[in-house]
Design a protein around this nucleic acid. Structure first.
Length: 282
DNA sequence: AGTTGTGTTGAAGA
DNA sequence: ATCTTCAACACAAC
């Protein structure tokens, strides 16, 4: 679930740990810890590089969380599907403890906040240790919807580079636009009154403008409501967001449309579930 | 009880 | 090169 609004919420929460210092690290799934060339780093090496370093800033880069350290390196964390980063003030979490919670796979120990606990059911999340200067070149090349560059003209240029793709695929292509996943793609297209299967070249100028506006509107609202907690997503205090209460179509197939009572349908586009109202969207 | 679907993304295969 | 498929893993729902 962590798409842009969820990652943004966590990054905002993690401003609390800026200026804190790493005192240790534990992991039982070290294969996801890598260097800038995506090569695995041994736990020993990683700990040695990390301990004593101060967190100088926490940033969102697409769906990634960057923790910048005071030695010109950064931890680039991607939560993938089920990752959670929990700031713990429990002194009960100690380095000597043998067993943590069932799905806790990494723990960063901190001087002031005790610990940053990394919970990940499916173990897909990644931790990359990268020189801060090389961070941007290691990332997806798409434009962030909240960057200054993301104008209507730029948006049109981006989507029209994929004339024969469906609008839903293009919205979710992180090489083009950053941060939109399966949930928000469906919600944005409902707000824009455009069906997800529509091919780019079939979209009118008006529809492209509506989709552009809906991207900002839906993502902004979702950030305000601290994200969508359907299954795994939690903020850094372990609390749920509340955008799941505002979903118009996502996972609402066979239910009535909140606007017109038509039954919401599900279809598969590029191997991903898509949800839409055949009456509200054209 | 076995099968299917799940938020992501990059690596492998065509 | 560029496109599609699949693997990484655990679990819930059917």
């Amino acid at each position: 679930m962590p798409e842009l609004p969820e990652v943004q919420t966590i990054v905002s929460d993690l401003q609390n740990i800026t200026n804190d210092i790493f005192t240790g690290f534990w992991s039982d799934w070290e294969k996801v810890i890598r260097d800038e060339n995506k090569k695995n780093i041994t736990l020993k090496k990683f700990v040695k590089k990390l301990v004593g370093k101060k967190i100088v800033s926490v940033r969102r880069l697409g769906k990634n969380i960057a923790l910048d350290l005071n030695n010109k390196t950064s931890l680039l964390i991607h939560l993938r599907m089920t990752g959670r980063l929990l700031v713990s003030d429990q002194s009960s979490i100690t380095k000597n403890q043998k067993k943590y919670g069932k799905h806790v796979h990494h723990i960063f120990f901190l001087k002031k906040n005790h610990a940053l606990v990394f919970h990940d059911v499916r173990k897909f999340a990644t931790i990359d240790f990268i020189p801060t200067n090389n961070l941007l070149e290691k990332l997806q090349t798409g434009t962030d919807p909240f960057s200054k560059n993301f104008s209507l003209i730029e948006f049109k240029k981006i989507i029209n580079s994929k004339q024969n793709k469906t609008i839903k695929e293009v919205l979710m292509d992180s090489g083009l636009i950053l941060g939109i996943g399966n949930i928000y793609a469906s919600e944005i297209l409902f707000a824009a009154r455009v069906l997800p299967e529509r091919i780019i070249k079939s979209l009118t100028n008006l529809e492209q403008g509506l989709i552009f506006k809906s991207i900002k509107k839906i993502l902004t609202k979702a950030i305000r409501l601290r994200g969508t907690s359907i299954s795994d997503y939690r903020d850094s205090a372990g609390k749920k967001g509340s955008f799941q209460n505002e979903l118009m179509v996502y996972k609402r197939n066979k239910q009535k449309c909140k606007k017109c009572d038509t039954i919401i349908q599900r279809s598969v586009i590029a191997q991903r579930s898509s949800f839409f109202c055949i009456n509200c969207q054209k």
